[in-house]
Design a binder for these strands. Structure first.
Length: 576
DNA sequence: GTCCTGACTTAGCAACGGCGTC
DNA sequence: GACGCCGTTGCTAAGTCAGGAC
């Protein structure tokens, strides 16, 4: 995949368990692995045991916890005002794992989480957060942190110095699975150097493990893009240290992704014709595949791999839909053949939609649901492997995911064409862009929790609009008066001044009203996900050029870096 | 064909920090 | 200069998909 990888440097934040540690060192930078004794364990950087006046209480009595148990208690204490800690599953998992870190005596004493009082630990945490907020820039070690990024945040790939995306090892803490995750609250353990695999070129400088320690393995695999990896203990999955999105390697992959989606554009009509035909197939499997493809294409559903029951939250995608996730209505709200979808998708985000479908799709769905009950798969003859195998036979590189990219990008392009108006000012053009972006976000079901301060900030903005309206009325009156007074006079200066004031007021009012509309429409919709992952950046770059809108109005610095390849190559006549 | 795993992309949340307003 | 708002950034969970083993 790449020829010549040199890992310039790599470091990990946080260190090892401290079970037998007998010495505490305070670290200025809080980053490098630090080792206390040649054969001893690591200690968390900067970790200080609880001061004497901060106590943990069990059943109303103060208890001095051993160091590992104390650290895990702090993880919980930091979260006590979060909804997580009210959930039974979270509490049970936490308590079970916490007890594993306790000494025998502690385990015999601490039997019930409800009798634990983390109040003082939590107060200490809040105090620390507040204290940090009040620090100056220098005290916050901004420069020191930058030095760490300079030293450890880069690698050399094909002779180019490239930024690493996540060069810090994930610190220990409590697992925050989304939704009703059965493993939420479990202890995410501290990663040791002995857990970490380093991947770098043969002959390159191998990063030094901390003194007295060794890496799990050093390998030289140029077929993969990761620089280091480890296995996390909660789900047993691999975690990787990889390059930043602005690297050449990631940029090339991004470009390839959009090129495959563009290629789909050339054969999508034939593919659609084929799955329409397959809806009539005698083979049940083929019909199911056709209906699934219809959903993936029309509704931009995800493929929906099977998941191991009890290991993760109960979420589904297209192929894993169950009969309880759809309701069929012969007629609904004056429309015929309506399918009502209601299920939890990725990240436990609810997908709720009422969609009129063709008669044939509707008839097939009725057939698939015959003699089935809650819990049964809707598409029992289909899985993502067979679906993708079929798709790749229709077009090289075609998978279910490509439809999402294709439909997202083509929707943006069409919407921009429909909504765009060269005569508008920049604020109005941006509203049109955001509306096009929003159409995509709705299609892909990219939601967000409404900001906590939403109602208040809308009220503030409305108050500003009202006050500006009053100013405008006043300015108009003053203009009228000035015109009256200037009648017959050759001096038009006052009138011109008042005219400009009216104009300025109108512009400001329009800008605020546009902002209010945009914000309201965006309340529960996340635009960033589609912008980052689904919309071919060349469409946006070309639009900016054609509409004479500065690119930084739609792409922030991070996005401009990520899409540098598109910014460099795109002309105004680009068509997706 | 199915199951499992590794590698990679996609996703939302929360902390941070810059900037406008008073 | 203080304050609050909101866009940006970092973090890491949760998906997709290919390939290998059986």
């Amino acid at each position: 995949m790449f020829r010549d990888l040199y890992l310039a440097s790599l470091t990990t934040i946080n260190s090892l368990n401290s079970k037998t540690c007998n010495q505490i060192e305070k670290y200025e930078d809080g980053v490098k692995w630090k080792f206390l004794e040649h054969k001893g364990p690591y200690f968390p950087p900067g970790y200080q045991p609880l001061p004497d006046d901060v106590k943990f209480y069990y059943n109303g009595k103060p208890v001095k916890l051993s160091l590992p148990a104390e650290e895990v208690a702090l993880f919980f204490a930091q979260m006590v005002d979060h909804e997580y800690t009210t959930k039974e599953v979270f509490r049970n998992n936490f308590f079970k794992d916490w007890r594993k870190e306790m000494t025998l005596e502690e385990r015999q004493l601490i039997m019930d989480l409800n009798k634990c009082d983390f109040g003082e630990l939590h107060a200490m945490h809040i105090k620390k957060v507040e204290a940090r907020k009040n620090l100056s820039k220098e005290e916050k070690l901004v420069k020191a942190n930058q030095k760490i990024v300079d030293e450890y945040g880069y690698c050399v790939l094909d002779h180019h110095r490239e930024r690493i995306g996540n060069f810090k090892i994930e610190p220990p803490g409590l697992f925050r699975g989304r939704g009703d995750h059965p493993k939420q609250g479990m202890l995410k353990k501290r990663i040791q150097p002995e857990d970490v695999i380093i991947n770098c070129s043969k002959g390159s400088r191998i990063p030094e493990p901390p003194a007295g320690h060794r890496w799990k393995e050093v390998r030289h695999d140029s077929t993969v893009t990761w620089l280091a990896s480890w296995t996390e203990n909660v789900q047993g999955s691999c975690k990787y240290v990889m390059l930043n999105a602005n690297s050449k390697l990631k940029g090339e992959k991004d470009w390839e992704k959009y090129e495959v989606a563009r290629k789909l554009k050339t054969c999508v009509d034939a593919i659609r014709a084929q799955y329409q035909e397959d809806l009539k197939s005698k083979q049940m499997g083929t019909r199911q595949r056709a209906v699934a493809l219809y959903f993936i294409d029309k509704l931009a559903l995800r493929a929906g791999n099977e998941k191991e029951e009890g290991e993760t939250a109960d979420t589904v995608g297209c192929c894993s839909l169950r009969v309880e996730h759809i309701t069929l209505h012969d007629t609904l709200d004056g429309q015929k053949c309506v399918v009502e979808f209601d299920f939890l998708g990725k990240d436990c985000i609810r997908y709720y939609n009422k969609v009129p479908v063709t008669k044939r799709v509707f008839k097939n769905l009725k057939l698939f649901m015959e003699n089935k009950q809650e819990g049964d798969d809707l598409f029992d003859r289909l899985n993502t492997q067979t679906l993708n195998k079929h798709l790749s036979s229709l077009m090289p590189g075609l998978t279910a995911k490509v439809f999402r990219t294709y439909n997202a990008s083509i929707t943006l392009q069409q919407q921009l064409k429909e909504l765009g108006n060269m005569k508008e000012n920049v604020a109005e053009k941006l509203l049109s862009y955001n509306r096009a972006n929003r159409a995509v976000a709705i299609l892909c079901n990219h939601q967000r929790a409404p900001p906590k301060t939403f109602e208040q900030s809308m009220a503030n903005l409305q108050a500003k609009i009202d006050s500006r309206k009053e100013q405008l009325d006043l300015a108009k009156k003053e203009l009228k008066q000035a015109k009256k007074e200037a009648k017959g006079s050759s001096d038009n200066n006052v009138v011109e001044k008042k005219k400009k004031a009216v104009q300025r007021c109108e512009e400001q009012l329009l800008k605020m009203e546009v902002q209010a509309t945009d914000r309201e429409e965006n309340k529960q919709i996340a635009l960033s996900t589609s912008k980052l992952n689904y919309l071919d950046p060349r469409i946006s770059v070309a639009w900016c050029k054609n509409m004479e809108v500065p690119l930084d109005k739609i792409y922030n610095k991070t996005l401009r870096d990520k899409f540098a390849w598109a910014i460099d190559m795109t002309e105004h006549d680009f068509v997706f």
